[in-house]
């Protein structure tokens, strides 16, 4: 199977196998007019499973790096302009995320005050643990 190279656009490479479609959904790529390819289970030398997912977007768009860093911080982002690739090796997990996930703790103040923003803070970088800033429940 061949997916042709792109001249101007973005390639998200080294996505953990199985997370490609999740990213496609949360990044809102289904809304785009341009060509978008999601490749699942591509061969990977780096990955311990030997597999990776890849997303190719045939346009320059603003990506939410916080979402990428939260869902899969090991991803390589390649921004291609006129055929020249500017590689960002690894996306760091963001210190805080807002509006991406909701706190599910029924005892949290966010369960009764709907207008409050759902904000999570990175409390354990090694294990990628995010906690609700209000009740400190772990993000699931």
């Amino acid at each position: 199977m061949t997916v042709s190279p792109i001249e101007n656009g973005i390639v998200l490479d080294h996505i953990t196998a199985g997370k490609g479609m999740e990213l496609y959904k949360v990044l809102g790529l289904a809304e785009l007019d341009c060509l978008v390819a999601v490749i699942n289970n591509a061969y990977s030398k780096k990955s311990p499973t030997g597999k990776k997912d890849i997303i190719k977007i045939d346009a320059q768009i603003d990506l939410d790096f916080d979402i990428i860093g939260y869902i899969d911080p090991g991803i390589t982002v390649n921004i291609i302009k006129n055929g020249v690739n500017t590689k960002m090796e690894k996306i760091d997990p963001p210190e805080t995320i807002e509006g991406i996930i909701k706190c599910k703790n029924p005892r949290c103040i966010t369960s009764v005050e709907q207008e409050l923003p759902h904000i999570f803070k990175l409390t354990d970088r090694e294990n990628m643990v995010y906690r609700c800033i209000y009740c400190e429940s772990k993000a699931k």
């Binding site: 703790n105 005892r107 949290c108 103040i109 966010t110 369960s111 009764v112 005050e113 409050l116 609700c132 800033i133 209000y134 009740c135 400190e136 429940s137």
Partner: peptide, 9 residues
């Protein structure tokens, strides 16, 4: 407050 995080708000 009975809800966790209410004083932070």
């Amino acid at each position: 407050h009975p809800k966790e995080g209410a004083p932070l708000v």
